[in-house]
């Protein structure tokens, strides 16, 4: 933790912030959009995106129990690591740095903001991967306990494809998402922790059985 405190103090100096506390507060604010999909800190589990504990220094696309897009898995297979440069480039323009990523985030233009966010992630989530298996959110586990009715999912999916078959800029692509991620996303829309007018409306009438069917079906797509 010593090293992290130094980074934050250094940042605070570099950015003219009064203290490391200010940098932490700014980091927290910058992380808020990420929190729609990612958890970090004690008890963090995979949601729509993988948990970010220990992401710094980890090989890309290797958080245990999370199914990544082909793009991230390939980067990991090449041995690429989330070092400061990789994190910074990715956060600047996710789809430019790793074309094909499922992450529906446009990026952070300001380099200083990216440095603060990376420092915050290291401070909150540590720089080493936790040992052992990562627990699945019990609500997601409950959904995925339903039988994976792919045929029902295929029918229900026609409600998704009218919007989610395009370029993936304004509306994310969802084909091939891991069932766990898919279910996490829809649950967050259903309970309103993730806000979007269309998705909140559509998720409101999806029962656990429907979410399980959709998750099973979309996992079969490329």
């Amino acid at each position: 933790m010593m090293r992290l405190a130094v980074i934050l103090v250094g940042l605070a100096f570099a950015t003219g912030m009064a203290s490391a506390d200010d940098a932490t507060a700014r980091g927290e604010a910058l992380f808020r959009p990420c929190a729609a999909c990612h958890m970090i800190g004690e008890g963090a589990v995979h949601r729509l995106g993988p948990h970010l504990n220990g992401v710094s220094g980890r090989t890309i696309g290797t958080a245990e129990g999370f199914r990544y897009s082909a793009s991230l898995s390939e980067a990991g297979a090449e041995g690429r690591v989330w070092d400061d440069v990789a994190l910074d480039s990715f956060l600047a323009a996710p789809r430019n740095y790793l074309p094909g990523t499922s992450m529906a985030f446009r990026g952070i233009r300001d380099a200083e903001d990216r440095a603060i966010l990376i420092a915050y992630m290291i401070e909150t989530g540590g720089a080493e991967a936790p040992q052992g298996e990562v627990a699945v959110d019990p609500r997601i586990a409950a959904v995925l306990d339903h039988p994976p009715d792919e045929a029902y999912g295929a029918f229900l999916s026609s409600e998704c494809t009218a919007c989610h078959s395009g370029g993936g800029e304004g509306i994310p692509r969802i084909a091939g998402l891991a069932p766990q991620s898919f279910a996490a996303g829809l649950l967050a829309y259903r309970d309103g922790t993730r806000e979007h007018q269309v998705m909140n409306m559509l998720a409101a009438r999806l029962g656990d059985e429907e979410i399980a069917a959709l998750a099973a079906y979309f996992a079969t797509l490329e």
Partner: peptide, 27 residues
Amino acid sequence: SEVGETDELRAETYRESIDWYDAIATD
């Protein structure tokens, strides 16, 4: 949509519509 939404949300709504167009054409 509501009157008084932020410029960012309105821009996002427009970007969304462009993707919807591509998606329904694909469909």
